[in-house]
Amino acid sequence: MQQPTPDPDLASRELTCAFALPASFYVGTAADERDRRQIFARSWQLVAHATDVAQPGDHVVADLAGVPLLIVSGDDGTLRALHNVCRHRAGPLALCAGRRAKRFRCRYHGWTYALDGQLSSAPEMDDAEHFAVADIRLPEARVAQWQGLVFAALDDSPPFAHLVDGIDARIGPGRLDGYVLQQRVAYDIDCDWKVYVDNYLEGYHVPHIHPELNRMLDYRSYRTELSRWHSLQWSPLESAEELYGNGDALYYWLWPNTMLNILPGRLQTNRVLPRGPGRCRVEFDFHYPADIDDAARRAHDAAFSDLVQKEDVDICERVQRGLASGSYVAGRLNPLRESGVHHFHELLRSAYRVHR
């Protein structure tokens, strides 16, 4: 059998001679489908905070590469990621998050499942031959809980421990466990999800796009550290006491689309979710220590974050238009400032090569 011709755009390159991904990987239906199949079906996704599923019956709903999931804490204390798809005719079991459910009943025909995914009743099925309620249960995805956060994955993904390897040693085991969710904000953006991730992964643009943030960070000391499945950008931080105070700004990116922004007294998580060709949604969850109630500081944090995000949204949408224009030819990456982008692109290239 003739082997496919290697795609030169997917060839691995050293950072010092690296080019960005070409525009074709950011534009159109084929790029969107490729990412769903090769990236999101084979990676861990942030789906909840541990407090969302703390008690038996507490649950949230999620979607992984088109597979609806129901993340639920069972009566036995086990956290599960059940497929939110009834085994009868594919109806949904839950439409939204909830607390203390005793069971899940399909919204379509009333088939009912226990919290562990076992079918417990199927109305009016007595006449069906060779049918036994005990033989039917919901499939499960993989689930992991770490630093107060809950992740889920389908089968083809690396072990979760590999994704976060080394982070506990840097920030401290369980450092974020005591944080609680206080606010969620979302932005719908007219750009491919990878454009947003590219932008996140470098501080090269900070002096040009974020004047207020640039005054807080030390651009000369800004560093990027790379691991197999994540990267860290960090800088000393100096800000007003009513905002963050002084300390380190730690910006973690976890393959492929999760960000952990750790500043003094605050954790902000970002989920970058594809929403079709050339579109994405970014969800920001703001977490603060449970033993500190400072509404004024949270308000300052939300306002400053919104300022920065609107600056990012504007430039990302403009970049997407440039990528879609037909004018752009993949450019060289800056070895000093864009090692995080190169790392991301190499992971993407590796995933795409497997597909080919």
Rank of each mutant, 00 (worst) to 15 (best):
T5M: 10
P8W: 04
L10E: 04
L10H: 04
R13W: 08
A23D: 06
F25T: 13
G28V: 11
R37T: 11
L46V: 10
V47F: 06
D52T: 12
A54F: 00
P56T: 12
G57S: 09
D63M: 03
P68R: 03
L70N: 02
C96L: 10
A97W: 01
G98M: 06
R103G: 06
G110I: 03
Y113Q: 01
A114K: 06
P123A: 09
M125I: 08
G148S: 08
I167H: 01
I167L: 04
I167D: 04
D168A: 08
D168R: 01
A169V: 07
G172L: 13
Y179A: 01
Q182C: 11
Q183D: 09
D188Q: 13
W193L: 14
K194Y: 09
V195I: 15
Y196F: 15
V197M: 08
V197D: 08
L213Y: 06
S221G: 12
S221A: 15
Y222D: 05
H230M: 07
S235P: 05
E238A: 12
A240W: 08
G247H: 00
D248T: 13
L250H: 07
Y251R: 00
L254Y: 12
P264L: 07
R266W: 13
C280Q: 10
E283R: 02
F284S: 11
Y288A: 14
I292R: 14
A295N: 14
A295R: 15
R298V: 04
A302E: 07
D314G: 05
R321S: 05
Y328K: 09
R332Q: 11
N334A: 07
E338Y: 00
S339P: 00
H342M: 02
H343R: 08
F344D: 05
E346K: 00
L347G: 02
L348R: 05
S350V: 04
